[in-house]
Computed example of a mutant assay.
Amino acid sequence: MSESYMRIGSLLVLIWLVIGVIAAGQRHYFDSGPVNCAGFSTIAVTIIAGPLNYMGVNPKIADCNVPQPSS
């Protein structure tokens, strides 16, 4: 019985993420987004938000500070 729950849960997560990818595509993040950390982060949080995008959530990352490697 737990195997069927895992399959249903995996299917729900997959559907959630596909809806997020569709939302990011409708916002044209894949064709015209800036190629930097903030742009990639905005795409990622939009995909993770999934169906919440259609309920008014519009996640955006304005700035992203990535630590530089030591020299």
Rank of each mutant, 00 (worst) to 15 (best):
D31A: 10
C64A: 05
A24Q: 01
H28A: 14
G33W: 06
N53V: 13
I15T: 02
F30L: 10
G50I: 09
Y5Q: 15
S4G: 08
L17K: 05
A62F: 03
I8A: 15
S4C: 13
C64I: 01
L52H: 12
I15G: 05
N36V: 08
L12T: 08
H28L: 13
P34V: 11
A49T: 09
V18E: 09
G56W: 02
N65G: 08
D31S: 10
S10Q: 12
P69N: 11
W16S: 05
I22Y: 02
P51C: 05
Q68S: 14
I19M: 13
I22R: 00
V57N: 04
V13C: 09
V57S: 10
A38S: 13
A44G: 06
Q68F: 14
I22A: 04
Y5W: 04
S2D: 12
S32D: 13
V35M: 08
C37T: 02
P34G: 11
K60R: 15
N36G: 13
L12G: 04
Q26L: 15
N58M: 07
F30M: 10
V13N: 09
A49Y: 00
V45F: 11
Y29N: 13
D63A: 15
G50H: 01
L14G: 11
V45H: 08
Y29F: 13
S71C: 06
V18T: 10
I15E: 03
Q26P: 00
F30S: 05
V18Q: 03
C37F: 08
M55K: 07
Y29S: 15
Q68V: 15
A38L: 04
G25F: 05
N65K: 11
V45I: 15
R7P: 14
S10M: 06
A24E: 00
C64N: 04
S4Q: 15
V18R: 06
R7Q: 10
P59F: 00
S10K: 10
M1L: 06
S41C: 10
W16C: 01
G56R: 03
F40W: 10
L14W: 02
Q26G: 11
K60N: 10
A44S: 10
A23D: 01
I15P: 04
P69K: 05
M1S: 09
G20N: 01
K60E: 12
G9T: 12
L52A: 14
G25P: 07
P67T: 09
D63C: 12
S71G: 08
A49H: 04
P69E: 05
P67N: 08
T46C: 01
S71L: 14
V18L: 09
A44E: 08
Y29L: 15
W16T: 03
I47D: 12
K60D: 07
V18D: 01
N65M: 14
V18A: 11
S32I: 09
E3Y: 10
N58S: 14
D63M: 14
W16V: 04
M6Q: 06
S70T: 07
D31E: 15
